[in-house]
Design a binder for these strands. Sequence first.
RNA 1: GGGUCGGUACCAAAGUGGUCAAAUGGAUCUGGCUGUAGACCAGAUGGACUUGCGCCUUCGGGGGUUCAAAUCCCUCCCGGCCCA
Length: 412
Amino acid sequence: MPEKQVKNQAQKVDDPMMLEDLLTRGVAGIIPKDIFTKKLQTGERMRLYLGVDPTGPVIHIGHAVILRKMRQLQDLGHEIILLIGDFTARIGDPTDRSAARTTLTHEEVLANAATYKEQAAKILDFSDSASNPARLEFNAKWLDKLRFSDVIELSARFTVQQMLERDMFEKRMQEGKPIHVHEFLYPIMQGYDSVAMDVDAEFGGNDQLFNMLTGRSLQQMMNKKEKVVVTFELLPGLDGRKMSKSFGNVIGVDDSPNDMFGKVMSLKDELIPEYFWLCTNSSVQDVQGVKHALSKGENPRDLKMCLARKIIALYHSVEAANAAEKEFIQVFQQKGAPTDIPVYHLAVEDVSIVDVIVRAGLAVSKAETRRLIEQGGVKLNGKKVNDAHTALAFADGDTVQVGKRKFITLRK
RNA sequence: GGGUCGGUACCAAAGUGGUCAAAUGGAUCUGGCUGUAGACCAGAUGGACUUGCGCCUUCGGGGGUUCAAAUCCCUCCCGGCCCA
């Protein structure tokens, strides 16, 4: 029977290779490093958490760098908490925003939180049957209870100058952009999470350093504990810019195998080694090997295909990875049709190809569809459609293609 | 509270009475090429249709002046900066 009792001891990390991997892969900084290292070596059980703002519904493989590290520590027996910032999300983190975020309603936040857990569960083990299950927490649990006097007391521990130290506040000051008072409270709220959960360590993206350090200060002041802060490299997006939904350069852990494959193939060549290091379990030697192969002139395409298989295997399965690769070769390298084409049932109103495309949702408006036809982006059974007006006789099983990636099969 | 500057399309930002569905950049899309949904090159990017130098909707909200308004006036809302 697995021990489900609270254990105060985690597994010791003796293997220097493993320790090295734990301390370096994806890690930008550890404050203070010696304490963290020692706790890993002695196996002193740590309570550590990652806070996420459920402002968007997608966990991407950049977040996963941190989650995968947490999974390693979970397996070693440390206590893992995924904190949903349901309270803080309503305020909006000013990090890396030129303007204050629009605030979400509590309902939106909770809906996002539910999908978060589902996605995080691809990496962390939340199941009751696990010997050391990860936990989900919500910070509204304690932040909602604070009274105004508590907030004053907490904020009195910090100065405006300290808050202004953040680059982004400074930048906004210089640019003459607004900084709202509640944004100053954000690091304090997030810092209070550490106190409320009485944690030993917090993980987070590099951009969260300031907020996490505020929590470290508070934890020292209020619980007399040295909270370790571990910051992680931000995984760049597929195009090399910051990974962000608004740039469309994100791979979600929930993406389908085919999507993942295609997205990895669109990765900027220079980022290949970094992705191997941060997004797969490849060893240092393997990553060196990849760099070497690239410098020797090996086709980056083939390395990306390998990378794509590894990533898909992680979030889906090896079989899914192989299938996705076959599909990619068929559709994009050989410009064939995909295996699974959605079916569209023709309606009586569908007189022209334009109607079909709009009603099937392949384009948002008729004007856009006409534009696509003019640009040669629409094919019926593999043949370019040149005229939007001709009424076409559709047959059962006809295939309509819009652009490179959108296909439908027609059914009467 | 006073002064002043500003609010433009998905985002940033020009335009300051007609030549404005609105420059430019980003983003997105299409085509070409290829190593691929990468890179590069070219083009497109409010909407409906009877495809018109025509129509409808859009330059923070509302109202007005004018043959004509993103552009002028009034008013309201929101923000920056300086002063108090």
